[in-house]
């Protein structure tokens, strides 16, 4: 299905947020926001993705 991942069109087979994160294989912890809703870590495996969802995966970077 097609989603918008971090602002870019993205094709994925992931059905749940947790699967999308696994697909990205981040070496660091990431937070997920689906259609402006912050998805708690405990709900990532049960939060289903739908066509056209806007997903943001965020992490920490250096900042002052």
């Amino acid at each position: 299905m097609k989603i918008l991942l971090n602002g870019e069109p993205y094709e994925t087979v992931a059905r749940f947020v947790s699967e999308l994160i696994a697909e990205q294989a981040p070496a660091v912890r990431v937070a997920a926001v689906v259609n402006d809703r912050v998805v708690p870590a405990a709900e990532q495996a049960t939060t289903a993705l739908a066509e056209g969802d806007r997903v943001e995966l965020l992490t920490f970077a250096g900042g002052g």
Binding site: N6, A25, L58, F60, G63
Partner: peptide
Amino acid sequence: VTVALRRFDR
């Protein structure tokens, strides 16, 4: 220490 948020980029 302060940290900032940023979009994950693999």
